[in-house]
Each structure stands twice: as structure tokens, then as C-alpha cells.
Design a protein around this nucleic acid. Sequence first.
RNA 1: GCGAAAGUGGCGGAAUUGGUAGACGCACUGGAUUUAGGUUCCAGCGCCUCGCGGCGUGAGAGUUCGAGUCUCUCCUUUCGCACCA
Length: 912
Amino acid sequence: MQSIYHPASIEQQAQQHWNDSGAFAATENSDKPKYYCLSMFPYPSGKLHMGHVRNYTIGDVLSRYHRMKGYNVMQPMGWDAFGLPAENAAQAHNVPPAAWTYDNINYMRRQLQSLGLGIDWAREVTTCTPAYYRWEQWLFTRLFEKGIIYKKTSSVNWDPVDHTVLANEQVIDGRGWRSGALVEKRDIPMYFFRITQYADELLQDLDALGGWPEQVKTMQANWIGKSFGVRFAFEYSIEGGTESLSPESGRELGERGVADSLSSSPSPASVGGEKKLLWVYTTRADTIMGVTFVAVAAEHPLATYAAQSRPELAAFIEDCKHGGTAEADMATMEKKGMDTGLKVTHPLTGEQVPVWVGNYVLMGYGEGAVMAVPAHDERDFGFAKKYNLPIKQSIAAKDQSFSDAAWQEWYGTKDGVCVNSGKYDNLDYDQAVDAIAADLAALGLGEKKVQFRLRDWGISRQRYWGCPIPIIHCAQCGDVPVPDDQLPVILPEDVVPDGAGSPLAKMPEFYETTCPKCGAAARRETDTMDTFVESSWYYARYTSPDCTTGLVDERANYWLPVDQYIGGIEHAILHLLYARFFQKLMRDVGVFGEGTEHLAEPFKNLITQGMVIAPTFYRLEANGKKLWINPAEVDASCDERGRPVGATLRADGLPVIIGGTEKMSKSKNNGVDPQAIIDEFGADTARLFMMFAAPPEQSLEWSDAGVEGSFRFLKRVWKATHDHVEQGVVAAYSSGEPENVWPGTRLSAAARAMRRQLHQTIQKVDDDIGRRKTFNTAIAANMELLNALGKFDDPTPMGRAVVQETLEAVALMLNPIVPHACQALWSGLRPGSDMLDQAFPKADPLALVQDEIELMIQINGKLRGSLTVAKTTDKATLEQMALAHEAVVKQLAGAQPKKIIVVPGRLINIVA
RNA sequence: GCGAAAGUGGCGGAAUUGGUAGACGCACUGGAUUUAGGUUCCAGCGCCUCGCGGCGUGAGAGUUCGAGUCUCUCCUUUCGCACCA
């Protein structure tokens, strides 16, 4: 062994050895249980950042640990290669997105390989290649034929200057990021996945996901948002037919469209009657007697109708179109409204209720109209106060009379009873909803209804760098899916987008085609798919990356579901929900073959790693655009709490503006490149420090203070092993009783203590990595063990055997985390033996035996002393010993204790 | 605004089931070796106090013999909010 730890040569040799031996090539013919370990694949943004290192190291630790535990492990890697940043880079540098993306992939692959990840690179998947997206298009056509994909109009952010659709991220304070123009909402036709059809299954199957964090399941359940409420109608009469007032937005288009029950299905009462109906949905039907107005969305047909005769209302509705479509913006903007002048009839009281247009009512939700109960809803209350609308209490605590302050306590609670509600008085929530729904149903004006918050998933993007939607528009035949023998629809790769609309829509050579059905001239769809579609099924493709006959082949049945999935908590809802949805879609289309109903969920166990966050810095350019500056280029001064208070750009010494502390990302340019650490200290130090810094699920503000501490630890392990090996390796103990190895000998007390700590550590590390996934404490336990070994000085053969046993165990325990160093350490400790073949160490129960324990003594819960006693001491003796303890005698000063609490193995608390 | 989390020394964090708060590491201080610096090793290191002792896990209340851990209210930070991925 070399006397000095030289990571560069050690890591190069280890990686060479792993490559040459094909150690991480995964095969399906194994008698071991399979373990499919998957980390979320990266977007090839240019360079790795610390979040990637964290994600992929966690995956590699678990992969290598399970390999040592006797599993047939598969750990693949690939590239989520379509996306917006490539188009931005293309415009900035005048290179096609494809070339930029492939360059980034090549660079980042080398970076990943230098981290020494045990990946089967033969399974690499790149989503922007036709070999991959061909099967996405194939699945699209199947789902289109099944009616799972349909077309309807939907709102997008429209930049009126650049004449292009903007992503939410490209809308800053209601303006387009390039043009600075006020963004408008615009309705365009789009393709949708009918994910709402799977809402109940997606909700129910969460219960079966025992290996998922509760918080993620809660977030998904809330997102799906199953609610039990009442859909009912207010009657009104105006000039003109009902037909002209049916909502345009949200209605399905085309011959395939099944009328959406949420938006336009006529209720029996609305057919043939002279009265028209304004439908609303509420989960608080118990407050129906407190309704004082109705609010409709700006796009609601009733608003459009009223605006015909009211120019100021038309102007208000126009004003509502400004701003983006993001829900957070809608929810935080100032609530504004305007009276339509129209009145509707309350179905139960017969009162005339005014109809207002509210900018906070969303056309895409429910009915696009809501009943307003200012007394029991905070938002309605604010609106009523602002516009001086009446407030009518209808809920109170039982027997409580009306008081001004009282109703505000009842925002959102279902614990009251009805008041001021006529025949419903004194009914509780459930009783009131039942009674009111029954009365509405008898009138033909309403019914109980289950509603989901989840909306169908719109996937059309008016962008270039994405998977083409395989549809051909024929004047005769309508929307025709591209037949299998014409797939894939290839995306041309040499295009540089100009930021004004979709390049594909300007390329006749792309969109001019003929109808597969009738042969007439037809136009190819030029929208591409949401990039979430690619990332919704890649985990399945890794099982059969080279399959040319289908999306996957029978190997999917062997590997799926993924045993361990690891990725950022930011994906807790959208990506994970879409992947779960796709698993069910693929199952129902028959992708996995016969008898695969059990493959309902893609990911058995999930770790959601916390974000690696860093401060952001920027400068405002002349046009108001923010130019984000990387923290590495900034000198920042911090206050006593470590927050940056002043910052200058190192290049020119002039100040920069401090933004928030946010997750590392391309868009905010606050990612920290791990390459400098790898270059200076090696991959093992980078991996070790990242795992030691915090447990995986915790968010982590990046700081490289302490990297040297991790390097120092590896040097100490190396030196301890080297010094031992130089004296000659020896046989290690394999049983707690040394007599079993060398009859007639006994270990010294110190050697027994050393072995006890060793085997306690093995037990803890096994549990920390395998069950708790707290790699930081596993590392700390090894540090403690090495500290103890440093103090253990026993040059006898028995002592040296204990040292050998300890060093071997340390190398084995650390191997999943710092595999290059451990590969070399093992060669030193066991010449001729390969770390790749080693099992994880097992704790020896005999070595763990301990007969004396330390008990804490408390008086009134305060620590006053301790006792070292035999493990078998009974309770009465313990109480006597405690009362005789010096500190206790002093504190009690002769008084009798009221009570003595003995917690076996832990403490004795004397209550005085 | 809504949903989900987090908050512990100067810093990252530990305390796994309500039972020794601060493991392990960084930084810092003192010492030894070497000395150009560094490396390595030893010791110290929550706050107040000469000490006895007291205080201490974002703030405030509560439950308990006992609370970092459980309950409630509030504050701050992070993630998500459907076209960033």
C-alpha cells in the first residue's frame, strides 16, 4: 500500500477495474432477488450541480449497499433532454438546441462517470432521440384512439409583442420576460390527457405505497382534492337562448369529444324550461342560507352577456385578461369585481341575489361560478367588505345567538350548526347538507356531487424542442393519428428558433403531408408535447432500452416496479403523479403483457431529497431584465446570522442585488459546480462530504466549509490501514469468544470493549443505511469507531487481530459511500481479494454482550447524577441505590420523595 | 392566497419509542512536532457565573414525574401551485 492517500490514482484505477470487470452491467438471469434503484434523470443543463451529486450519490450508496446485501442490482442513467432552456441557449448562442443538448450530455456524462457511480451505462436513455420518442408517439396514438387523449381549448400566456406563448416561468410580474409587454390570457386548442378518469385510482392507490414519505402522499391527495359537495343552480331569465350562454372555454372539441359533465351537461330542469340556470358547486351547502351574491368568472357566458349592454363591465372583463395563468398569481392578486346588474333567484329562499364578476373565480374550475357566503368564507368576506355587499350569518355554535364577532370564528369550520336558516336551524354540517341536497333535488335544481380539484393534463406546447404530437389534420377526416408504420414523426434537429412562435409551424417541409385515411393533402400537427410526458415513462424504458418491437419487452416484468426511487422533493406532486398515471395507462394499454395487473404503481419506495439551495444574485439590465450572476463570481458579506447583506461582483468590484436563497437551478444561475471539489480532493471526498452534510430529506444551504474535514477523515482511515498493513496482515476474529479462534486465550478488557464498539457500530451503520437512510449518522459512527481504534493500543497478536477485524469492517461499511478508497483499502487488507465480491459485515451478537449499564438519576426531571449498575439489578434495589446517592441525599435534605419513577435501562426520576 | 415541510452552539448537524441536549465534523483558542506556510498530534470549546449554581432547542401557552420530541397560537425560511424541470 502507498503510505499517502492519493485519490487521483486510486480513483482512476478503481474505475478502470469496475469498467474492465463489467461489474455494474445488470442482467435478468440471476438467482438473487432484484433491486432496481433509480435516481431521477437530469436535465442536461450544462454542468452538474450539487443537487445532482447529492441525488446520484444517495442512489449509488443504496445500490452498492444492496449489492453487498446479496441483491441483483440495476442502476441506470439517462437524460431528460427536451426542454425550454435548450431553446433559450439556442437563441443566445445561435446553435441548434440539439447540438447544445448533445454537447451538454457528453460533458455531464463524463462528470457523472468521474463520480464513480455504479451505473449500467449500456442502458442509457436519451429522450430527444427518435428511438425513445417513437414509443411515446406510439402510446399517444393508442390513447387517442381510446379517448384518453382529447382536444379542448385552454388558456395560455400570450405575449402580444413577440406573438408567442410564454411558459409561466417566462412571465415576470405579469410581463413577458423578453418583450416586457403585459401578458394576456388567450384560449387555444390543446390536447389533454384525461387524468381525471384515473383520479379515484390515483388517490386510492396512495394507501398501498408504504415506502413513500407521508408528506408526499398527503400532498398528492390534496392535489387530487376529492371533495363531497353539492352542485346546484340559481334560476334567472334574460333575453336570448340558453345555447348562446353555454361555456365555450373548457368544452371538448371534435367528434370524439364526450360532453364534459362539469361544464356543459344540461340538467333535466334546464331542458325545455323557460328559466335559465346558473350552476355552481359548493362543499359548504350547509351555508346556502347565508348566500348574499354569486360570483362568476370573467370568461363566464353570463358575464359576456351582461357586458353587451355595459361598456364599463366589458372594460373590466378585458382588464381581467391581463396577467398570467399561474394559480399562485391568481390567488395573491387583489380581489376585484364588478356588478353585472343581473339577479338570479336563490333556489331555496326565492330571494333575488346579485351576480358579480370576480377576477378570482376561475373558468377552468367547477362551473366557473361560485355562491358567495361572506359570513363564513374569508375571501367572500373581504370581497363583500370591499364592495359593501350584505353579510348574513348562517352558522354558529349551538345555542349561540348572532353577534358581530361570532361568524368570523366560523371561517372554514364544519363544527357549527345552522342559524338564521329557517327549517335547517340547529342541523349540523352533515344533517344540513343532506337536507338541503334533498330539497334541491326535489326542485330539480341540484344534487350531491363528488368533485376533484385535479384537472385534465394539457400537453400541447407551441414549441420546437419537444416530441412532435403524432396527429395529422385532414379537412375531411379530422384529427387522424399517425399510423404505426409512419412513426416516429421525426423532429428536425438543425433548427435555431427565433423566439417568435413555433419554428415547426413555419416549415412546410415538416407540416405538409397527406391524410393517412383518405390520402388528401393534410397538415401535420406542429405542437410538441409537454416534456413531463418523456419523464413519465423513462423508468420503464430502462428495463428494455434497446427494444425495437415495442415500448418495453418482457424484461420490464422482471425489473418493475422500481424498488427505490430517489429525487428532489420539488417533484412530489407533478412528476410523481404523472409517472403513476402513466404506469396505469401503460398497464391498461397492455404494454406489460398478460397478467400484469399488479404493476399498478411504478415506484415501491421513494426518497425525496431536500433541495440544495444557494443565494441568488442579479443585476437589472437597462430593459428591466434580471441578469443572474453565479455565487462563485460574487463576494458577499454576511450579518451575524450568516445572511448576505452586501455583495459585489468580483470582476468589477461593483455591487450586485441580493435575491432570495433558492434551489440550485439553471434559470437563477445559482448552481455550484462540484468539479472543483472533485479535482482538488477526489470524488470520494465529494461523495463523503455530501452524504455527511445532512440527512437526505433535509434541505441544505450549500457551503463547502468542512470539505477538508471529510478529506482528512479519508486520510486518517488510509493511514490507519496503511500502518497496520505495513506490520503484516493477520487473521481477524470471527466470533465474540476469542477462545473459539485461539483456544486458551482471553481478550483483554480493552480489546473486548473495542470489539463491542465495533459490532455496535456495524449494527448501527447497517440500520442507518438500510432502514433509516441517514448516511450522515452512519459516517459519524465510523468516525467515532476510528477515533476509538486510534486509542486502542495492543501490539499482541490478539490485539492486532482486533485491529484487522475493525479496519476490514470500516472498509466494508464505508464502501457504499467512498467506493474507490475502499476498493484500494480492501486490496491492502486482503491481498488478492476483490471488494466487488464482499458482503456487508454482520454484527456478532456475542461481541455485543454488555453486563454493566449506566443509569441517570433525576430529581424532578433534572439530571443530578448517575449510577453504574449490573444490568440485572431489580427495581427495588435501584430505588434504594438512587436514594443513597450523594446528590440525592443532598437535594432531598431528609424529606420523603413523593414518587420514584424507574425507566429500565435509562433513568431513575425522584419526584420530591 | 392554498398545500407540504423545516427552525437545536459561531457553522453543518446528532439525540431512532416522551427519558443524559449539543454525538460527529467545521471554525476558533492553547500546547507539542515541524517550521516558510501548511501537515500531523494533544487539550479546550452552548450561554451567564470566580464558584456554587442558574439558563438554554424560533416566540408564546398547554399536557406530563419528565418535552428538542406531543397539542394549540404566532413568526421566519424552503418546496409546490398545473407551460422551469
